[in-house]
Design a binder for these strands. Structure first.
Lengths: 343, 343
DNA sequence: TGAATTAATTTACGCGCGTAAATTTTAGAT
DNA sequence: ATCTAAAATTTACGCGCGTAAATTAATTCA
């Protein structure tokens, strides 16, 4: 291993006793050479510290093995989890994921796509902002590099979309809440950037109608990504004003619910489904922290893993067959009810 | 803008009426050309969609503008926050950050360094695991690429270290807890991977001695990164067994404290410093969620921003002057006491 | 207006590898 | 030992750019 420095494939070919084109074949696909030669190469690799220059490789290869993975905000544990799943799916398939966070701003999302454009990725897995994303921008990008959307849909953009069936999941938790106590009102942001939020509101309305109850929606002012803060201040205000006409609140997502739980605690309102509880609060997403809220949060678990892996495998299929799907397909996974203590 | 496709710098030179070497100079440093030519180039850039091929650029440049940023676990909001700060510092200085998470496993940390090696970065900002990191590995890497450590120290590895002064911060919160109530016991993991944990234990011991109190340390079994879970189960067990000889618990970090808070809630022990409270719980780090725990968590705020920016600027200085510092310097920032409701 | 300085151009080579075509070698079967 | 298909080699070109040296053009200042 402490032999002379290998500077390029030419030199490595010399010391391994093979020709450079053969080595090039090997590095592109180790199974494309005879087993005996593969073993010779791998033996040499152990003795000499050599690896192909990524930049030279990617300059000459028609398509790189890079896959761009763009999420709206890595500071949100939901996205860091799903991002990790996507990353691992890429690695497992022999691709190199490039994980980028848009840090909560659509401008950064644009920058990230711009950056990816110059990295010539084989494909992109994008969890967009939704309303704030520029559909034309995504569509234009998709003409050059196949894009598969996940988590949040942009109608018509990208080759496919994979996410959670909000109508199923909201109906599930509405049904549970109605069965086990008073029908829920719905708490959300007034101007949500995320399209899932709109679907969830709609799903709530439909579900309540179907169950024969009158829906009530409460919308919090506020911008940005500090959902807990908004849930705490706005939710706390509503609680202290006794604005809800029911003892049950379904929050559009867990982070709002986490904020509202902290407000309820501060205000001395006991939350839960047991004796002496004043309020039931439920969320949606099964945020990594929702197991440790006080009380633990009843919520809907999205199937992170299934969404990430399906989105990735759809992209891989496009890359392998080298043809875009005839029609844009949307895959929706069911959410699962996670019954904890808050509702 | 919708002119013919520009395929390379040669063609862009043709349409912009300049020579390729001049353009090359411009792309390396826009200020290295005359203002009039710079304006001509930027005008052309608006008309024609061209950008240099990153791979060709990086193949030929002696050193790339890439900076590797490696953190132990992006799923931990602490690291995603500090990672974001570091990223932005790099961008502001004209570098391209490559953010990599080790996903909680030292093996992945090694893989990340290995990957970075092939990306030929100008420098690396590394938040290592500590005990589980291979010091020799980091040191070897540092011989090729300047490495600056942050958050967690590895004695002697890297060109410099930037972090929080655990002795100052722990002393600060121990002092506060002693002044405002019973002296704290200390709750931590039995076999912490993070070197800060060891410093904090030591700091707790010294601080208690100095204040004339007898220290008590409680250590939780358990591996991995699910600190909340461990804090909840082990902390809950200790609470229900009335194992602590004081009503005040200082947790080694916020995530353990968050877990313990959930256990206290579950067990019906009221936490806080007010009337009728059975327990005071304090943490360390000012985790993004610690404002929304029940009750909100009294803790030590690390100066994320200062740590990130100092680490980055130390690296930039090395890169600019192109010389390693004569001696390895360690920069420690003070922590700040954040008084909330839990203690 | 001229000389002195600065900036841009021309020319040329190299980086490390992908890849194609023609040729030679090797392996597995008869 | 002979044949054949598969695999490896030789040769050669190109990718898009950095960079250096020599030359020419443009700018600045006296």
């Amino acid at each position: 291993m402490v032999q002379k420095k290998i500077r390029n494939m030419e030199e490595f070919a010399a010391v391994s006793g093979l020709s450079r084109p053969t080595l090039s074949k090997y590095f592109n696909d180790p199974d494309s050479v005879r087993r005996s030669t593969r073993e010779r190469i791998e033996l040499a690799l152990k003795q000499y510290d050599y690896r192909p220059n990524v930049y030279a490789v990617n300059q000459n290869r028609r398509k790189t093995k890079n896959i761009g993975v763009v999420v709206p905000n890595l500071s949100d544990p939901f996205f860091s989890e799903i991002g990790r799943e996507v990353e691992q799916a890429c690695i497992a398939a022999g691709y190199r994921p490039i994980l980028l966070s848009s840090h909560g701003t659509p401008a950064q999302e644009r920058d990230n796509l711009e950056l990816l454009r110059s990295l010539k990725p084989a494909g992109v897995l994008l969890a967009p902002f939704g309303r704030m994303s520029d559909p034309a921008d995504v569509a234009r990008f998709n003409t050059q590099v196949p894009v598969v959307l996940f988590d949040a849909n942009i109608e018509g953009a990208g080759e496919a979309f994979v996410g959670t069936d909000n109508f199923q999941s909201i109906d599930l938790i509405v049904e549970y809440l109605c069965r086990s106590g008073e029908p829920p009102c719905f708490f959300e942001m007034k101007t949500p950037t995320n399209p899932n939020a709109n679907k969830r509101r709609q799903a709530y309305l439909e579900s309540m109608e179907r169950h024969g109850f009158t829906p009530h929606i409460f919308q919090a002012e506020g911008d940005g990504w500090n959902f807990e803060e908004i849930g705490s201040t706005e939710g706390g205000r509503l609680i202290s004003e006794n604005a809800f006409r029911t003892n049950t609140v379904l929050c559009s997502n867990d982070r709002l619910a986490i904020g509202m739980l902290s407000a309820a605690y501060r205000l001395g309102r006991k939350v839960g489904h047991g004796e002496g509880c004043a309020l039931r609060i439920a969320g949606h997403d099964d945020h990594p922290f929702s197991r440790f809220t006080c009380p633990s949060l009843t919520t809907i678990a999205q199937d992170y893993s299934a969404i990430a892996n399906r989105a990735a495998s759809i992209l891989f299929r496009i890359l392998d067959t080298d043809e875009r799907p005839a029609r844009r397909e949307e895959t929706l996974f069911d959410g699962h009810l996670v019954m904890r203590d808050s509702a």
